[in-house]
Amino acid sequence: MSAPPAPEATPAQRRAVAWSRLRTALFIRPTRTALLAGVLALLLGLALTVQIRATREQGLEALREDELVGVLDTVEQRRARLSEEVADLERQREDLVTAPAGSEAARRAAQDRADDLAVLAGTVPARGPGVTMTLEGPPQGIGTGVYLDLFAELRDAGAEAIQVGPVRVVASSAVTESADGVVSLDGTPLPARVVVSAIGEPRTLASAMDIPGGLVETVRGLEGRVSVTTSPSVLVSAVRTTSTLR
């Protein structure tokens, strides 16, 4: 081992000393502890490659107990939901098979389904519990993004029918903004003060609007005004005509 550098050594000298020490260290000096160090280094190399490989093909077995509990819980909930659905469908099937001539129950089921779909597609007016909101935009108007967030949040909260101003909002609805900043919904320009009606579980819908970062906060941040009122009976009167499918 070389002597430590004198305190007054220049940086270049100190560097040279460090390099020479590195070279010296590379010579094989087979003492017992050096061999032991070699074995340990071998184990480290082995563990390193094994662990890297294990991480790449890691499945459930590498998860911790609490993470596994979470996964199990999710699967369990999903199973419960699916078995509920199975029971539902089996009951329906039973009805269809056993009903006299099968026709009445089948007709009723089909009609129920058609009614549900008509509400979702916006081809019939709908009435039910829900919320009514008055959106009063700031002078520069509410941007298209706010409307898109509004629809997404309402749908997430389980809204079955949504009307904005005179327009029924459906799956294919588009919010556009013209060059002079006028926001239109499906081609109908929206006024600065617009009434939004949505049918669904009123409390869920109202709290979905109120969450931090949600619609109410966003619009207030833009210096607009919002009021949300829940009601046991909200009318969504706007309808749209179905276009024939291509």
Partner: peptide, 8 residues
């Protein structure tokens, strides 16, 4: 040196 060989 031995540790380096061991690692490899």
């Amino acid at each position: 040196m031995i540790p380096v060989i061991g690692l490899v």
